[in-house]
Write a protein that binds this DNA or RNA. Structure first.
Lengths: 212, 212
DNA sequence: ACCAATTACAACTACTTAGTTGGAAAATGG
DNA sequence: CCATTTTCCAACTAAGTAGTTGTAATTGGT
């Protein structure tokens, strides 16, 4: 049998993704990852250095591939709302990315791994957002994307919140999805209107409220 | 010296809150909590049963007290936007509640502790929301609250996301706050308008978009 | 087919962890 | 002031834990 180190690596990465996704960095067990991959755990230290290095590799791989899997298509506020809907569906189908994102935030804080690649990914999404909503600023585009991520990624990570707040009726998922899509549509519309009437103190739709 | 078991309990609870907040359930260390509280760790097992019991006590205490600390005041969409702003500020000042909420979601999943008390807390907030936006349904009120929690609690748990998406300019926090407040205002306005024109297919402001 | 380098792995180590225990110190009631 | 109960705690235990090592199997170049 030929050596297939890439296969061994990807088996480990896959098992590690599953383990870190469900248990986080502190809760994950090296032995369990190796057993799940059907590989000796010593391989982990050869290929990834240590537990932290393996976690890094998992984070970078999972969060980068997500960027390609759910692209922004079309133009106008509808395009951003549509993107939010597809992101919501994707995370609902597979909660790996949101869970890893929050594990990283909680266990690593501001120490972000793979920074250049991830900054490029984010910049690309910001540019797509500006393309969809011509005239808005980079900062507003980033803010809209943070809003979308907040709304779409929270649901699969806090599965109990929905039941606690809105009951367990059938069709809850669809209603929550609709609420997210609509909220993003409203936020994107407001930004687009603001950009269209640039300079003017009054926006077309939904003037910025003066609160607090 | 008189026995002051309540003080011992609260010292442990305080130290445990800090430890679980920063490290989560799997990452927390019983020895560290006892040392921080200046109490022998055997007391933890007498008072709280085990590590999980202590975590439960921390979760219930922290998330319940939050409900009283940030109330909903006033009426109209502005009231909900104002509530979101105050919740945002509160979490920014002290990230304990959001961090514990996400730790619980990630490490416990749907298994929610202190269910009756927390259901009552949520129902109370839903009722306040209905009082602020007369005519909206329980489900819409719950959805709006989930949106607010998603927007306000994500920021302190994912401290790197903001820098990645929108840069590190001074005044970023204020801009993010304004974006959250405005988004909540728009969502609340749409629900209020829908409730006002109940039955009518067209809402006053911001008709529900037909996306996807 | 042989050999140096690489890949695999079982057994091992040094250390940390949650949870326990036996007895000392302090309070309470008579 | 003594007997009983409750609170406290240092030392202990049993079960993991991340990471290492010595050795055998497998490879490609020659």
């Amino acid at each position: 049998m030929a050596w297939d180190t890439e296969r061994t690596k990807s088996l480990l990465l896959e098992a590690a993704t599953s383990e870190f996704c469900t248990r986080g960095l502190a809760g994950a067990r090296i032995d369990r990852i190796a057993a799940e991959a059907g590989v000796n755990k010593e391989r982990i230290y050869q290929y990834f250095g240590n537990k932290n290095g393996l976690f890094d590799a998992v984070i970078v791989a999972a969060l980068s591939s997500l960027m390609d899997e759910v692209p922004i298509h079309g133009e106008g506020p509808e395009a951003m709302a549509n993107y939010a809907g597809r992101l919501f569906d994707h995370h609902q189908d597979d909660a790996t990315a949101p869970r890893l994102l929050f594990w990283e935030g909680l266990e690593r804080g501001t120490e972000v791994v793979g920074l250049p690649k991830r900054m490029a990914n984010c910049a690309s999404k910001v540019n797509s957002t500006i393309a969809a909503l011509p005239g808005i600023s980079k900062e507003d585009a980033g803010d809209l994307l943070i809003t979308i991520v907040s709304l779409c990624d929270t649901a699969p990570v806090l599965p109990a919140l929905d039941g606690l707040m809105a009951g367990n009726d059938p069709g809850r998922l669809e209603r929550r999805r609709a609420a997210v899509v609509r909220t993003v549509y409203l936020a994107a519309s407001a930004l687009a209107a603001e950009a269209a009437s640039a300079g003017s103190p009054t926006a077309e739709i939904a003037p910025a409220p003066v609160v607090q």
